[in-house]
């Protein structure tokens, strides 16, 4: 039982990070119908910037240096998000759908190599700033950082929902997602809304990057690749373009992965082992897409797809 609970906790922690990153994919897709493959790299940039900031401010008390470096990481990533959209996507907004997809992959490669030039190819160990107390819940263990990750992720998701559904900006975002031309005719500044969307997504990515690095005590220049791929999967699983879907998809993917890796060996009597961890997650994805092509919570996107 405690093992099961532990796997649920593992999955929740992992899943909250996936969900945060998945939101970035899904927001951009919802508004532009574009998959921003450079999003994973923004996560990595957030982690690396925070790492550098922390090492510069090594002398300051962690209560000062952590918020400062987080703020710096968020600012850099927002600027990056704005820049990516402005340079790589806006000139191609009315081009065939394949063109921005290719520039997205291009931006991803550029960012990865840029990070490699700046920070080198090594794994960096991310400083542990606070004593990381472990707590026992019914035999399972969760530590401070993991609690912060789950709580912060849920708070940010709730905040995002509020912004999208309760504010003027949110209404503009939904209007642009619905129909760009109509929104423009109604006086919505489409370019501004798109820029802000990218910046919000990038801010979430920066926080996710710092969380991942703090949790694993690790940052390196290509950490965004696999994380981005998983988060994209989560977004598709939940129904890409749908905010609640991204959150649900992220959490589900985290849970499926950890329960899959933990029990697949026992279930199949050793025939399949934890090497099939990823296969398991993608099997679920395929199954969902066969029976619900638009994802779990996805709306019908006939006119888009």
């Amino acid at each position: 039982m405690e093992i099961f609970l532990q796997q649920i906790i593992n999955g929740l922690v992992q899943g909250s990070v996936y969900a945060l990153v998945a939101l970035g994919y899904t927001m951009v897709y919802g508004i532009l119908g574009l998959i921003n493959f450079a999003h994973g790299e923004v996560v990595m940039m957030g982690a690396m910037v925070a790492l550098s900031a922390l090492s510069v401010m090594a002398g300051l008390p962690p209560l000062v240096s952590l918020p400062l470096s987080l703020f710096l990481a968020i600012s850099v990533c927002m600027a990056l998000g704005y820049g990516i959209e402005r340079i790589a996507y806006r000139p191609l907004r009315h081009a065939p759908r394949l063109a921005p997809l290719i520039t997205a992959i291009g931006v991803s490669i550029v960012l990865q190599n840029l990070a490699m030039l700046i920070w080198g190819r090594d794994y960096h160990s991310f400083p542990q700033l606070f004593a990381n107390h472990a707590h026992r819940i019914g035999g399972a263990i969760i530590n401070d950082i993991q609690i912060v990750i789950v709580v912060a992720a849920f708070l940010m998701m709730a905040g995002l929902m509020l912004v999208v559904h309760r504010t003027r900006l949110g209404r503009a975002m939904r209007a642009v997602a619905e129909n760009q031309h109509a929104a423009q005719l109604m006086g919505v500044d489409v370019n501004r809304v798109v820029s802000i969307t990218f910046m919000i997504g990038s801010a979430l990515a920066a926080v996710a990057g710092v969380m991942v690095s703090a949790n694993y005590g690790l940052a390196h220049y290509y950490m965004g690749f696999l994380l981005g791929l998983k988060a994209f999967t989560a977004a598709v699983l939940g129904g890409i373009g749908n905010l609640r879907g991204a959150m649900l998809g992220g959490l589900l993917l985290g849970l499926i992965e950890s329960l899959g890796a933990g029990y697949i060996g026992d279930i199949t009597g050793g025939f399949m082992g934890s090497q099939y961890q990823d296969v398991f997650a993608f099997l679920v994805l395929i199954a969902v897409l066969i029976f619900r092509p638009s994802g779990l919570l996805g709306e019908r996107l006939a006119e888009r797809a």
């Binding site: 999955g11 696999l226 933990g262 934890s274 090497q275 961890q277």
Partner: peptide, 19 residues
Amino acid sequence: EYTSDKSVDFTAVLTAVKA
């Protein structure tokens, strides 16, 4: 248990090992 040479999260397999 198994992992890959790209992984960073081992909590799931380690929990399975712990059992």
